[in-house]
């Protein structure tokens, strides 16, 4: 199968730190790939590079087998790529609906819309549906998200990305601040999004969750992909070994 998104030999340095040291990566449509690695392995940097919010020094990207450049978030969006960033990237003074539709506001029909007026009712309705789908515990749709708990904000970011993704969705530690029920909801959502034929990239430090939800697991270490495993045929010990460098897999 042609990968929905593939990266070859991406490099990116921050001063003397080689955050990405020729990393390869690929994810197929309708597949969940877990991306794991120690802190500082380069997972978040890779996600940013693949979603247009960070420029790489070199390397190539292929979307459905065609070479592409993803140099802006808008370019990523045009390819159907959505991202839940580790730092969430919400506007704290805006409410959940405003965040959900930031950059894609639904305008009123006709002249009013062309003058810049928005269709609030429409946006509120769809936001409500998206949150219900996720089983999100966000209750106040008119309060600024900055006043909400870390868990609630994480749910808003996840709901937003899931609602808009059409090819690939990146989830960078999307359950770090979530409780048991909400984490379950996110894992269920990942499966549902995958069943829509979307490629899901899931970053987490929880090995049980990774093994449970992923089809394939790719391990990053010091800015390179050092191993790829079939989630059905691997173990926690093997994954931890690969992350720390104790085990090395010949053909990554």
């Amino acid at each position: 199968m042609t990968p929905a998104l593939e990266a070859r030999g991406l490099r990116r340095e921050f001063g003397h730190v080689r955050a990405l040291d020729g990393v390869d990566f690929d994810v197929d449509p309708g597949e969940v790939v877990a991306l794991i690695g120690d802190n500082g392995a380069g997972k978040s940097t890779l996600v940013k590079a693949l979603s247009g919010s960070l420029a790489v020094d070199s390397g190539e990207l292929l979307s459905d087998g065609r070479p592409v450049t993803i140099d802006t978030p808008t370019a990523a969006r045009a390819l159907g790529i959505e991202t839940v960033y580790q730092d969430l990237a919400l506007a704290p003074h805006l409410d959940p609906v405003q965040n959900m539709y930031l950059g894609r506001e639904v305008m009123k029909p006709g002249l009013l819309g062309r003058l810049g007026f928005m269709d609030h009712a429409e946006m509120r309705k769809h936001t409500r549906t998206a949150f219900t789908d996720l089983g999100a515990t966000v209750r106040d749709f008119a309060a600024p998200v900055g006043s909400m708990s870390g868990g609630q904000r994480q749910q808003i970011a996840v709901a937003r990305a899931a609602a808009w993704a059409s090819r690939v969705i990146f989830l960078d530690e999307p359950t770090a601040a979530l409780g048991v029920v909400q984490t379950r909801n996110v894992l269920d959502l990942i499966r549902r999004v995958r069943d829509r034929g979307i490629a899901v990239v899931f970053i987490s430090h929880s090995m049980p969750h990774v093994i449970e939800v992923a089809d394939r697991i790719q391990v990053l270490r010091l800015g390179r992909r050092v191993a790829t495993y079939d989630a059905k045929k691997t173990s926690m010990e093997e994954l931890v070994g690969a992350m720390t460098g104790a085990i090395s897999q010949g053909a990554a």
Partner: peptide
């Protein structure tokens, strides 16, 4: 509120 969030959106 968050110019980086706006840019990414």
């Amino acid at each position: 509120s968050n110019d980086e969030a706006a840019r990414r959106a």
